[in-house]
Amino acid sequence: MKQVTATMAGTVIQVLVSAGDNVGAGQDVIVMESMKMEVPLQAEAAGTVKEVKVNIGDFVNEGDIVLVLE
């Protein structure tokens, strides 16, 4: 099981995939915003989205798991 973690603390502003979607390595899956900066989070490896753990507007801390792939 692979997961995507937040690279910084901030707010989730876009969720680009849903459970069941196939994603490629390096694909943007979530976009976060903090301190006037938008940062996309990417899937490190290809897989199927098992669970999206966040919603738009959620505040997450650095290192939090935002998405699980299988």
Binding site: T7, M8, A9, G10, S34, M35, M37, V39, E62
Partner: peptide, 13 residues
């Protein structure tokens, strides 16, 4: 800046 000194990503807290 409140940011990571390597990645330069924001670090609120």
């Amino acid at each position: 800046y409140a940011e990571d000194p390597v990645t330069f990503l924001p670090s609120p807290g």
